[in-house]
Design a protein around this nucleic acid. Structure first.
Length: 728
DNA sequence: GTACATAGAATTTTT
DNA sequence: TTCTATGTAC
């Protein structure tokens, strides 16, 4: 049978073990995706009803990929019945279906990180604490960790022993109250409430287990406690649970991932079959050995090393550069050389630890005219006008969502300013009603001016008008109609027209309308089309759960720039990992804690193992961060890579480049001079260096940014008088 | 009530 | 560097 062809013994075992608990330990490049998809296809081919299969992943992209690959094997009529979903999307959907059992409104809002921070900030203030001593973001991360362990506010308060936890407990209580009052859930709630429901409600749990008889969990090493509870509850009776993962690729500890879930799988399921896939089919020998050498420095690394039967290939390159600009240039040149040998751009990627590094790299690729995309799927939905539009829609579904309400009640300005809102809010608090209700009764608030009352009434009429239009079967609106109606009536669109970048914004808004029109409409469990409210809820939900890695399009024909986290699960012919510096990779925030340092090492390992043929690792000796230029120290990880597999490249003539060391001789240029270049136009010299091929100057061009050129060949002209200030 | 300016802070990764 | 929050002028 075709499904079982060309597999190694281990892979075959993983594909054909259909019943009972199964742990697949899949090293990078070990054919994990192929094994998983064939196993699902095999399950269906053996007569399992696809509707009984539930596959859970971490990203939408992984879910889409799995659905696609299984379809390719068994046809999409079969996969249509299958549930392939991310944990969060699965939970979000189940909570709308089982809202009564879970104790939430079916129209609940999902609050994103910004909304959460606003709520936490308010909670800190309500608790009488100062937001400077208790930064909302840090309090939130403690709360998030508690939620992921299924510890609610009351339990957290009971268990809080030290001062810090006791203070956080006060915030946690109030934060939860705010969420509840607003019919809002944060990301952690989605998992937590489903886990709680499965634990506490036997009939719901039974119904879930009846419905899905085969559970598959991808990236199991990254599951947190809530996800563990969900997966094990689902498999409780039939124990048909297959988990796939690799402890060496666990990189989400900071988000509550508990590596013990995968390490202790055999304890939870003593009858489990364990299939290690350690042979790498992806990368050439030097790359595999370099990565294996690095990961062997982790004390948590217990499994057999990765190995390959492919050729050795080329050693990896470890390159030290002078600064981030030269680093970006080195990567560009490296990629250009690979392209000259016939490698397509889409088979190349630059990986970095922190998003802020993308800028310099992006500039370099743009200047070099190389097609490139930065993986930032959430960027579109973070634009102000889009967030505003979505807030209107959220409010339409959930009138109790104060954060949405406050965001748009005066956008565009309609005379409902801070004073008015404060008065209404004070009144609402005093009378114990919600803000959303209070603005509907402006006459009940004595402090308001007539003008403010009128403005509030107009706002209410507008929203009510939309609701009516939505429920009117006569109009027969679809979701895209609703979106454009809101954009038009709210004045959001019209207000854009006169702003400086108005055209782009109007375009973004119409893109949002197209997105509403193009979104897939899934029929519900009974095969009926959901009503407009439900469609809106599903759409907003899918938007809330978009991630950066969702934007990666393998067919785009461009170099991909992304974080190391976003790169998990992907592979490329040529990979550059940038900024291997102390404090960046490993990140400075991991320095205190040995376990975090190990996670940074795993992150580096994940990055290295993305490369099939060619791996470049770079670091800069100087780097500008938050506007400050600093010397850097090399990452300890570079020293842990076995020398036999790496070729080390150092800068040719470092440190002849300070302002005082202007070379003597025929050079007419020195640091700070304004010069003109025939192609790049005006710029200012930042640096002059003696290099083997002649004197070079690094010039910050007004139009093209910094470039390093050979003075003898560049045809530079000095412009204007000499300046005393160097402008730097 | 609104728009602009200036001071100050900024946690890395993400559902 | 870039964003945000707060204060000031209209």
């Amino acid at each position: 049978m075709q499904l079982l062809e060309g597999l190694t013994e281990a892979q075959l075992e993983a594909v054909t073990t259909l019943e009972g608990p199964l742990l697949v330990l899949a090293g990078p490049g070990s054919g994990k995706t192929m094994v998983v998809t064939r196993r699902v296809a095999h399950l269906v081919a053996e007569g399992t009803d696809p509707a009984r299969i539930l596959a859970l992943t971490f990203t939408n992209k992984a879910a889409a990929q799995m659905r696609e690959r299984v379809s390719a094997l068994v046809g999409d009529t079969v996969t249509a019945g299958m549930q392939v979903s991310t944990f969060h999307a699965f939970c979000a959907r189940q909570l709308r279906i089982w809202s009564d059992a879970a104790g939430v409104s079916p129209n609940y809002s999902i609050w994103d990180t910004t909304d959460q921070r606003d709520a936490a900030k308010q909670a800190v203030a309500d608790a009488g604490m100062s937001t400077s001593n208790w930064p909302p973001a840090s309090v939130l991360s403690t709360i998030s960790a508690a939620k992921n362990r299924l510890v609610d506010a009351a339990t957290f308060e009971q268990e809080a022993t030290d001062f810090n936890d006791r203070m956080v407990a006060k915030v946690y209580n109030r934060y939860e109250a705010i969420l509840r009052r607003n019919d809002a859930l944060d990301f952690d709630d989605l998992l937590r409430l489903v886990a709680r429901m499965l634990l506490d409600n036997p009939s719901v749990s039974a119904s879930f287990q009846q419905r899905w008889q085969y559970i598959l969990v991808d990236e199991y090493q990254d599951t947190n406690h809530a996800q563990f509870i969900i997966a094990s509850s689902l498999a409780q009776s039939h124990r048909n649970i297959c988990v796939v993962g690799d402890p060496d690729q666990s990189i989400y500890r900071w988000r509550g991932a508990d590596i013990r879930n995968i390490l202790d799988f055999e304890e939870h399921y003593p009858e489990a079959r364990v299939v290690p896939l350690g042979r790498n089919f992806r990368s050439t020998g030097h790359i595999v050995s370099a990565a294996a050498g690095l990961i062997s420095c982790n004390t948590s690394h217990r499994h057999k090393d990765l190995h390959t039967q492919l050729d050795d290939g080329a050693p990896i390159t470890i390159r030290t550069c002078l600064d981030e600009h030269e680093e970006a240039e080195a990567i560009v040149n490296h990629f250009r050389a690979a392209a000259a040998q016939g490698r397509p751009w889409k088979e190349m990627a630059v990986l970095y630890r922190i998003n802020s590094l993308s800028r310099v790299l992006e500039d370099a690729f743009r200047r070099a005219d190389i097609p490139h995309v930065v993986a930032r799927g959430t960027a579109f939905y973070e634009r102000r006008e889009i967030k505003d539009a979505l807030a209107y829609l959220r409010l339409l579904l959930n009138p109790n969502d104060d954060i949405a309400l406050r965001r748009i009640i005066n956008v565009p300005t309609r005379g409902i300013g801070k004073t008015t809102l404060d008065r209404v809010a004070a009144h609402a608090t005093a009378t114990g009603c919600r803000l959303g209700e209070a603005i509907r009764q402006p006459s009940g608030v004595p402090e308001l001016t007539d003008r403010a009352r009128k403005a509030l009434s107009r706002f209410t009429e507008m929203v009510d008008g939309w609701r009516e239009a939505m429920t009117s079967s006569l109009l027969g609106l679809d979701l895209a109609d609703v979106v454009s109606m809101v954009l038009r009536d709210s004045g959001l669109e019209a207000a854009m027209v006169n702003t400086d970048d108005g055209e782009d914004r109007v375009e973004n808004l119409s893109e949002l309308v197209s997105a509403a029109a193009d979104r897939p409409i899934e029929p519900d469990e009974e095969g009926n089309l959901p009503d407009l409210d439900r469609q809106l809820a599903h759409w907003l939900e899918s938007i809330a759960l978009v991630s950066d890695s969702d934007a990666i399009d393998p067919e785009s024909g461009a170099v991909t720039l992304m974080t190391l986290h976003a790169a998990k699960g992907l592979e490329f012919d040529v990979v550059a990992v940038a900024a291997l510096e102390q404090g960046v990779l490993p990140h400075s925030r991991s320095a205190m804690d040995p376990e975090s340092l190990e996670e940074e090492r795993r992150l580096c390992y994940v990055g290295m193992t993305r490369a099939r043929l060619d791996l470049l690792m770079t670091r800069a000796m100087m780097r500008t961060h938050r506007g400050l230029r600093d010397r850097t120290m090399s990452s300890p990880f570079l020293d842990e890579i076995p020398a036999a597999h790496a070729q080390v490249v150092m800068p040719v003539e470092p440190w002849q480049n300070t302002a005082s060391s202007t070379p003597r001789g025929p050079t007419l240029f020195k640091v700070g001079d304004q010069v003109e270049h025939p192609r790049f136009g005006l710029g200012r010299i930042q640096r002059v260096m003696a290099r083997p091929r002649g004197t070079t100057a690094t010039i910050d061009f007004d139009e093209y940014g910094p470039r390093t050129l050979l003075v003898a060949q560049a045809g530079l002209e000095r412009v204007g008088a000499e300046y005393d200030d160097t402008g730097a």
